[in-house]
Design a binder for these strands. Structure first.
Lengths: 203, 203
DNA sequence: TGTATCCTACCGTCCGGTAGGTAGAACATA
DNA sequence: TATGTTCTACCTACCGGACGGTAGGATACA
């Protein structure tokens, strides 16, 4: 069951996900937490404080998860593989939280907004640095690093939009497909048209 | 200037984009339209009716735009190129509307929700059909059509999240980059690692 | 005179948040 | 062991204000 604060947070995550932040009332959260509305204010200073807590812990968890998955992986291509796999897996396993992180930033005041965006920018920079390094070292095809990083990150993030926990494919399976799509296709130069039909002999 | 209804709609688009649907009050829309709140109800039956109008006209316009861009294009690879280019261009040119379409569906009642999703599904099916056909004909590398279509569509749709009208790249330039990324990379088999450094002689 | 358009004034409801209090565990003093 | 104090966690009851929407009248143009 966990602490009352965790119960409140979990209820808020479900409601923000289902109804959106602004459409969710404190009384809704209270009801789902089996608590009176005023009691929430013993654990959180305001409604926004709940949202901010969700956003920051989710972003921090994502960042820590990726760092852990990259630990000890040296080769840049393998690092990119691990990063994509971790990012997609996290977005399958924490679907509601990351969707809130994507759509409810407008519920934050300027100060909290800046704090969150700083975390997010630092996270995205890790991908941009990897891509730039991979291009430098000749592992990845040349291109606009900013645009390629946006393409990869948004595509992997959006998995949270369509992933279904009880669907045809598991989070692990989707991670594997995306790892391949990104690292062996999107980041590489392609073979010419119709080369697939007639195998090409190299070297 | 246009009709009063168009003024209201335009004000609503700006506000829904900036503050979100639920955080926007009818009085806000009235203020930005230089009209009294009650007057809005002469043109729209309810707040949701405004949202529904925005969503449906945007989705219909996107669908019509893509159809027009594909007219007369026969070769499947060129069709895919045209489709990606059109999709990205539309999402740059109608940034606010498509972002609302992506995030504010929870503001719709069940009936309206179904009507919108039907349009969207039909649109997405066009891409899935193209990808399946391209794979069949050997133009595109084999893979999970559903997942690949999601990857492509979400990546192209998300351009609306980061595109800046006065930024470094124009909508046309970004469309060109994405056209290449999707059709000559993501949909193709790649060359082996480091092949970029030493050119490969084929056939 | 009829109709479309817009207005002022108002309704009931729900919102985020607060005031102030109670039950009970923890602890210190004697 | 008995008694007073403090703290956490929760409660009931309420506040001012904003919300979406409505009733019914004024204006303007055909």
């Amino acid at each position: 069951m966990g602490t009352t604060k965790e119960t409140i947070k979990k209820a808020a995550i479900n409601l923000f996900y289902k109804k959106s932040y602004f459409a969710t009332a404190m009384s809704n959260i209270a009801l789902d937490s089996n608590i009176r509305k005023a009691s929430i204010y013993h654990h959180y200073a305001s409604k926004e404080d709940i949202l901010f807590d969700i956003l920051m812990t989710t972003m921090s968890a994502l960042d820590a998860y990726i760092d852990n998955c990259l630990k000890g992986v040296e080769n840049i291509e393998n690092r990119m593989r691990a990063a994509v796999r971790a990012h997609v897996k996290f977005h399958c396993d924490n679907q509601k939280e990351v969707l809130i992180s994507d759509t409810e930033l407008r519920g934050l005041t300027a100060k909290n907004y800046k704090a969150f965006v700083a975390l997010r920018d630092a996270y995205e920079k890790k991908f941009q640095d990897m891509i730039a390094r991979g291009i430098d070292q000749g592992y990845f095809a040349a291109g606009d690093v900013k645009v390629i990083s946006y393409a990869i990150l948004t595509m992997c993030t959006a998995v949270a939009n369509w992933f279904k926990p009880d669907g045809r494919l598991s989070g692990d399976q989707i991670s594997t497909i995306y790892e391949e799509l990104v690292v062996t296709r999107l980041l590489k130069e392609s073979l010419p048209i119709h080369s697939l039909k007639t195998p090409v002999v190299r070297e």
